[in-house]
Design a protein around this nucleic acid. Structure first.
Length: 581
RNA sequence: UGGGGAGUCGUCCAACGGCAGGACGACAGACUCUGGAUCUGUUUAUAGGGGUUCGAAUCCUCUCUCCCCAGCCA
């Protein structure tokens, strides 16, 4: 006999497998572009992508889409994907974020080899590029204040005005820029701007800021620099330095592409192609670092890795597997239109995988005591139970049975409606793998609540089949009361009650749509004794209840804590819900 | 009212001038020692108007709707 082996090997065995079992690559426009470029030999048959997160928050499922795209496409076409931190703003970035991001991408199953880069590694070269632009008259130091720059920029419908500092000589600009770098000026007193077109319909082209003064300590370069490049200047050149072929980013950067191209063209350097796709939106959650940070800071959740969070850290703790997430990212496809993907698809993906891999186990979440009156008081026996009917290799285990059991409260109704198949007075059901039992009596407490059930069992049905061929309509999970161990089980529901919490009504904030019932902690569940050895991160199916994962933070050997990853599909719950309407 | 982008089943994605297809969801049935899984079936879509064409989701044109952009954020 084998004890059920938890599904804790997903992390290792999944590495380098791009998609989960059954995943078929879906055609998308980026894949087509790359396929054509590879065929035409556009970059000498080379493919180089990059994943460029800013270390100012934790990665979420939306980032997973980008990670899967960049790393996935690279491996699919025999190319490489660089890992690059876009760390050009010291006031927002922290090493804590760097570390979590590295861990999350690795956990998702991708490998960047020795190609871990930082935009801050390029600060020296970026400075030289800026000097070059000054020399050819394409950049200037501007003394306008932030407010003045905004004012000079014009509006969406009116052109901007040229800065009075726009015509400084290259010599003067060079000298001023050097002094900016030397720390001679206060934060915000001067910036370096590209000299493009203040009348452009594209506001990004109205002499955008390239460098600003920030006397902040950078998480990697410390106090070496007091001027920092802006995204538009740093990003394209970092791509160029790394000889990226396809720079894949989200739609909001589409307006920035002319500027991306401008810097590269003016400097006459290697020119990657920027391609934009629509970011992921998921129903009943939010996917913006700003909003997630707010949930954390305002204690609406317990932290970045709260199992209700759509962060990779939260989903990992919740019990999601890397393959399920990758499979999800493949199934949602890639397009350019804004969309809201139904959470049901994510749940489908994780059930699909866990159904095949998670060992089955019995756990009673809301216990109801059952006494088998005709079962000897001092007797105990061990009954064989299959570990995973979907996986013959998973073997079987022995589960203790005795006179006093717990079953799920929801599996008994004193006065059941017609559609209810489970236990009721006078009715016979099967205890999974064990015996048929029949309810003979109901004991109530002083409040009139059902406190315990008295049943009889049929010894001839041991194992779960009746020799006389009689049938029962339901099979219940159970645990032996004296043998079971107590556990805490945390049931999660969606974080928000609104399909799209970003779609806020007048005067409301997305936090107004938080689901007050997103977490329900059940403190005295009874689970079968084989779970005594469950380790943090181990995943199981509690039969008939759902998939559960031993919590990595709060579980201890004496007191296991399980997180419900996702429920099983539940016909009965659906009927009940329909009946209430 | 400036610039950019997008409109295909309830949802997401295909179809790139030639039978609008898949997945999820929903609904119905089969099977079942998990009301799970599995299997089968059903359902519903080209934003609108003109045009080109033997033939248009696809090309042209006008209109409508939605999203993004006025950080010294990325």
């Amino acid at each position: 006999m084998e004890t059920p082996k938890p599904d804790n090997t997903a992390e290792e065995k999944d590495i380098d497998k791009r998609t989960g079992a059954g995943a078929v690559p879906v055609p998308n426009f980026i894949r087509s572009i790359i396929a054509e470029d590879m065929k035409s030999g556009k970059h000498d048959g080379r493919l180089m992508t990059r994943f460029p997160p800013e270390p100012n928050g934790y990665l979420h499922i939306g980032h997973a889409k980008s990670i899967c795209l960049n790393f996935g496409l690279a491996s699919e076409f025999g190319g490489l994907c660089n890992f690059r931190f876009d760390d050009t703003n010291p006031s927002k970035e922290e090493v804590e974020y760097v570390e979590s991001i590295l861990e999350d991408v690795h956990w998702l199953g991708f490998d960047w080899g020795d190609r871990l880069y930082y935009a801050s590694d390029y600060f020296g070269r970026l400075y030289d590029y800026a000097v070059q632009l000054i020399k050819i008259g394409k950049a200037y130091v501007c003394d306008l204040s932030a407010d003045e720059i905004r004012e000079y920029r014009g509006t969406l419908t009116e052109p901007g005005r040229e800065s009075p500092y726009r015509s400084r000589s290259a010599k003067e600009n060079l000298e001023l820029f050097e002094r900016m770098r030397a720390g001679e000026f206060e934060d915000g007193s001067r910036v370096l701007r590209a000299k493009i077109d203040m009348a452009s319909g594209n506001i990004n082209m109205r002499d955008p800021v390239m460098y600003r003064i920030k006397k902040d300590t950078h998480h990697r370069t410390g106090d070496t620099w007091c001027i920092y490049p802006m995204y538009d200047f740093a990003h394209g050149l970092s791509d160029s330095i790394e000889r990226i072929t396809h720079s894949i980013c989200t739609m909001e950067y589409e307006d920035h592409r002319p500027l991306y191209n401008w810097f590269l063209d003016e400097l006459k350097v290697y020119h990657p192609q920027q391609i934009e796709f629509a970011r992921l939106n998921l129903s009943r959650t939010v996917l913006s670092k700003r909003k997630l940070l707010k949930l954390v800071n305002e204690r609406h959740v317990a932290g970045w890795d709260d199992p209700r969070m759509p962060t990779l850290a939260g989903m990992r703790r919740r019990g999601y597997t890397p393959a399920a997430i990758r499979n999800f990212c493949e199934r949602i496809g890639v397009g350019k239109k804004e969309s809201l993907v139904d959470m049901a698809l994510l749940e489908y993906c994780v059930r699909e995988e866990l159904n095949k891999s998670a060992p089955r186990v019995m756990g009673v979440l809301r216990p109801l005591k059952v006494v088998i009156d005709n079962y000897p008081e001092d007797k105990e026996e061990y009954i064989e139970a299959i570990n995973n009917p979907e996986d013959p290799g998973a073997g079987a285990r022995k589960v203790p049975f005795s006179r006093v059991l717990y079953i799920e409260r929801d599996d008994f109704m004193e006065d059941p409606p017609k559609q209810f198949f489970r236990l009721a007075p006078g009715r016979e059901v099967r205890l999974r793998y064990a015996y048929f039992i029949k309810c003979e009596g109901v004991v109530k407490d002083e409040k009139g609540e059902v406190a315990e059930l008295h049943c009889t069992y049929d010894p001839a049905t041991r194992g779960g089949d009746a020799p006389d061929g009689r049938k029962v309509k339901a099979t219940l999970h159970w645990v032996s009361a004296p043998h079971s161990i107590e556990a805490e089980v945390r049931l999660y529901d969606s974080l928000f009650v609104k399909e799209d919490p970003d779609d806020t009504e007048e005067g409301k904030d997305f936090t107004d749509y938080l689901n007050p019932k997103s977490l329900e902690a059940l403190m005295s569940c009874h689970i079968e004794p084989s779970l005594k050895h469950a380790k943090p991160g181990d995943r199981y199916q509690f039969e008939r209840m759902g998939y559960f994962c031993a919590d990595s933070a709060d579980s201890s050997p004496g007191r296991p804590v399980f997180n419900r990853t996702v429920t099983l599909k539940d016909e009965w719950a659906k009927l009940q819900k329909a009946g209430k309407k």
